[in-house]
Nucleic acid binder design. Structure first.
Length: 520
RNA sequence: GGCCCCGUCGUCUAGUCUGGCCUAGGACGCCAGGUUUUCAUCCUGGUAGCAGGGGUUCAAAUCCCCUCGGGGUCACCA
């Protein structure tokens, strides 16, 4: 019926926009994407917004921008504009007619029926079962209602639902691509279950099954929290005469307390990691490693490599704890690997956030279409009342590229470049137990050496300063106070680098200030 | 509680299907050392684990049984 080539793999990622897109969903999305790409299949994005009360457009946008940031693109599916595809709209809220069609079919075939039990009656029933230590189960007999009774009830009762009639004691089994054979018995499912509300609006399991069929999903890859939905979905598929897709249930990502990762475990919002200074390739690499590995010792790879190596069979069955330590390590690795210009661009928002610079735009006289240039960003270190070019910021960032674990650290690490005066205690200038007078002397020597430099280059500074330092009892006694004078920190980039980036004038000014400070 | 799933260093994991090459390998973390003026990077070394108990076998992390532990799920949510 559908124009779908045989053996064409189609997967779907079907999040519900009821909260910010989080790590767990990102992992499910990623694995679907990897599986699709690896098998040259199609990756479909469907928005499951049947819960009108909890679904919000804002969350839907968050899903899309997060996927985009990670580099997970979808071949088909919902877009911000909401175009329809070959299979109709990709938002469940817009697919009502499709569900109704299948619902009526089930009703006509008496595979589903109206249930007029009120909420109170059902609660009572469950209460009773709980007391008898029986599992909760629908034991109503609305299925037995005759046509006339049904019509009567429809008028009398305001509330009703539609339930699927399921066999009593039947084994349901499916072969999970990750966990192997999984078995259920219909007697454990809890009786006939609700598939739609009074207005014929479908519940999750029903909508999901209909859409998977309509959209020709060949594989359903989702979180382990859905295994218990699977037998219900298979029952619906059987009732509707649909073919059963292959299932693969991914283990859950756990918090440090080993329970399902949730808000109470800290940042779970995926986009929050961007804001905290993580790189998308780091997140992708890290999340992929949570529950999957290529079967050997390699573990640092980018999307393309992961796609090549990926297979569902190499996925873990047990849940994995989200370990920030390793994420930080991987993030640091990718920060070091990237081009400094890229890193600088990404650091700029963090420098702004840390109140160290402001971004200004140099307005071009004409817009590009009329021959003008693109408006360019320029930077203003307001504490120093100093304009900075991109390259100046880049020089600063380059000093910390191999010291950062997250981009957000740049502010704390490099703040002394952007402030008038580095803040520190004068005791910090003292190298080991050297007397303060000696430090002053060495500071003087450094000032003298640097003043004599005509061509302010990185090489020249190092050459001359090393000469000076070698004349002292040890290099530390010269270089430590210099570094502290310039940075105000006990740990920082090297003194020659800092001096070079700071410029001759500012370097000498800070050294002189340190001397004065020491004498106070 | 019913049902389903899982259990190798603190964490992520290789090894389990097809017992021996496992004295259980790698990575993060941590510790020590080297490079270095500091920090970081980088390099070297170390630390630490088969949940427990029974079998089967010449031989078990690997096969079988039991126990224990952990998680998921039981809505007119998804």
């Amino acid at each position: 019926m559908k124009k779908n080539k045989k053996n064409d793999i189609r997967v779907r990622f079907a999040p519900s926009p009821t909260g910010y897109f989080h790590i767990g969903s990102a992992r499910v999305a990623l694995f679907n994407f990897l599986f699709a790409k690896k098998n040259k299949g199609t990756f479909v994005l469907r928005i499951e917004d049947t819960d009108k009360e909890r679904s919000k457009k804002e969350y839907e946008k968050d899903i899309m921008r997060s996927l985009e940031w990670l580099g997970i693109s979808w071949d088909e599916g919902a877009t911000p504009k909401g175009e329809r595809g070959e299979f109709g709209p990709y938002r469940q809220s817009e697919r009502g007619e499709i569900y109704k069609k299948y619902l009526r079919k089930l009703l006509e075939e008496r595979k589903a029926y109206y249930c007029f039990c009120s909420k109170e009656e059902l609660d009572k029933m469950r209460e009773k079962q709980k007391k008898k230590k029986e599992p909760p189960r629908y034991e109503g007999n609305c299925f037995l209602l005759s046509e006339s009774e049904k019509e009567k009830m429809k008028k009398e009762r305001k509330d009703f639902t539609i339930r699927l009639h399921i066999p009593d004691n039947k084994k349901i089994e499916f072969n999970d691509r990750i966990r192997g054979k999984v078995e259920f018995n219909t007697k454990d499912i809890g009786g006939d279950f609700v598939i739609a509300k009074k207005d014929l609006s479908p519940l999750y399991n029903f909508a999901c099954v209909v859409d998977d069929h309509e959209m020709n999903a060949t594989h359903v890859i989702r979180g382990e929290d859905h295994v218990s939905n699977t037998p219900k979905q298979i029952l619906i598929q059987e009732a509707l005469g649909f073919s059963i897709p292959e299932f693969a249930h991914l283990p859950l990502i756990l918090g440090t307390d080993k329970s399902k990762l949730s808000k109470r475990h800290g940042t779970v919002s995926l986009y929050g990691y961007k804001e905290k200074g993580y790189l998308p390739e780091a997140l992708v690499n890290f999340i992929a490693l949570l529950g999957w590995n290529p079967g050997n010792d390699e573990e640092l790879f980018v999307m393309e490599e992961i796609i090549n190596k990926f297979s569902l069979e190499d996925c873990q069955k047990s849940g994995a704890i989200f370990d920030m330590g390793k994420l930080n390590y991987i993030n640091g690795y990718y920060i070091r690997k990237r081009d400094v210009s890229d890193i600088t661009k990404m650091c700029i928002p963090h420098l702004v956030e840390a109140d160290l610079i402001r971004v200004e735009f140099t307005e071009e006289q004409y817009p590009p279409a009329y021959g003008g240039k693109e408006p360019k960003e320029s930077y203003y270190a307001h504490h120093r009342e100093k304009k900075m070019s991109f390259n100046e910021v880049k020089d600063i960032v380059s000093l910390y590229q191999e010291r950062m674990r997250t981009l957000a650290e740049i502010g704390e690490l490099a703040n002394y470049f952007f402030v008038k005066e580095p803040v520190y205690e004068k005791e910090l200038l003292i190298w080991k137990n050297t007397p303060a007078e000696d430090i002053t002397t060495y500071l003087d020597k450094s000032i003298k050496t640097l003043s004599d430099i005509k061509e302010w280059s990185r090489e020249e500074i190092e050459k001359r300063m090393v000469e000076t330092a070698n004349k002292a009892q040890n290099r530390g006694v010269v270089l430590w106070p210099m570094r502290v004078a310039l940075s105000g920190k006990k740990a920082s980039a090297g003194p020659f680098d800092i001096a070079y980036v700071l410029g001759k004038e500012e370097t000498l000014r800070r050294l002189k200030n340190a001397k004065i400070k020491l004498q106070q």
